[in-house]
Design a protein around this nucleic acid. Structure first.
Lengths: 204, 204
DNA sequence: GAAGATTGTCTAACGTTGTTAGACTACACG
DNA sequence: CGTGTAGTCTAACAACGTTAGACAATCTTC
């Protein structure tokens, strides 16, 4: 396993090609939706042919999983920005609208990110950063309000599920993203205010 | 357009065949998941061939839409049962667990019921009964607690989105349906208690 | 009851999808 | 220069949604 000059160049080219595939697929997904992401379409868009995909991904699902991963990275980055907000309550509320806005700005990616069928061991790892962020912010909020949330994990999943559900609602024409942003904020306001008034821990 | 004996029999047979297709497709969906619902598979299961489907549905999407409609009817029926619960708060909490339990008992159907891509004018009509139920119960709860929810429609969608999100969360192995049922109850408890403590109307 | 129309069903095909095997080409290394 | 390796393409497969056209059975009408 020597490290020759050309082999290193080759592996860089391989990596570059892999990135190109992901970029092209992502662009297709965002601009034309799930149905546009086919192996042939992705390859053609780069002036290659379909089998090129299989030189870099085990199958199409693996490629899509990479898009999903990319999506969560984008989402994490966007959520990091509201980190500037130091007030624990406002920060959570900003995160809520931020999350739903993301769903509105990247509707098809958002869909792909939430296809449960693509469950895998890796999925948990992909979502983890966002959940960690949320769990952290919730913890800070709780201690700032001197509230015991019981299981922090539970609280985190409650908020996560709530925001996801309302974000998904916003995808419907009958609801719309802007209204969904408002609803998400209202929902989180209600939940936090509820936890506040329930005061302490939940009964068994 | 006379009403002869045989034409009436024929139309009954047509209707029966349509029902058989729906039943077969529903069974396949529930037992083997979305990928098992193909025109060929559905037809073969009934000892027919694929084109039979197109004698009764414009396309596969129309068939799936019928399954979704069927699913919402089942859900509505199941929610009607908790109607026995007269206490407004307990009734809503029961509905929450009921809804999430439904997601756990019919996971693939639940998925199909929530594919946003199948949006259509008819979709709103399909979901309407459930939303009406929820809106009604929320209204009763609000007046029983002497709380002004502001826009009743908003409150309804908040709860609807929340429950859906947590129900979908339960589909993940890392969460599980039983835990999701608990989480849904907790979420709704928090929201209601939050609305209670916020007391009156939301600011503009 | 026979002729013609209607209706149910199947066969066969088209285009598209994910995916793989095998051929070809170009470059790298001895 | 010859040999091997890595990258790419062509061609094919099975399965999918969908449609046209043929066939047969039934109904209508005289």
């Amino acid at each position: 396993m020597e490290e020759t000059a050309s082999s290193s160049r080759r592996s860089k080219e391989r990596a570059a090609m892999r990135r190109r595939i992901v970029e092209t697929a992502l662009q297709l997904l965002e601009q034309e939706g799930t149905t546009a992401v086919t192996t042939r379409r992705v390859a053609t868009e780069m002036d290659y042919t379909a089998p090129i995909v299989y030189q870099h991904f085990e199958n199409k699902d693996a490629l899509v999983l990479e898009l999903v991963s990319h999506g969560y990275q984008m989402l994490t980055a966007e959520l990091q920005e509201v980190s500037a907000q130091t007030d624990p309550s406002l920060r959570l509320l900003s995160a809520a609208t931020s999350y739903v806005r993301f769903a509105g700005q990247h509707p098809h990616l958002f869909d792909a990110m939430n296809v449960v069928a693509v469950e895998s061991v890796q999925r948990s790892a992909i979502v983890e950063p966002v959940l960690d962020l949320l769990q952290d912010w919730l913890g800070v909020w709780a201690s700032s309000q001197r509230v015991d949330l019981g299981d922090n994990r539970d609280a985190c999943d409650v908020v996560w599920g709530t925001l996801y559900g309302i974000g998904a609602l916003g995808r419907l024409d009958s609801v719309g993203n802007e209204r969904a942003q408002r609803l998400a904020r209202q929902a989180l306001e209600a939940i936090l205010s509820g936890w506040l008034s329930q005061g302490g821990q939940r009964p068994a």
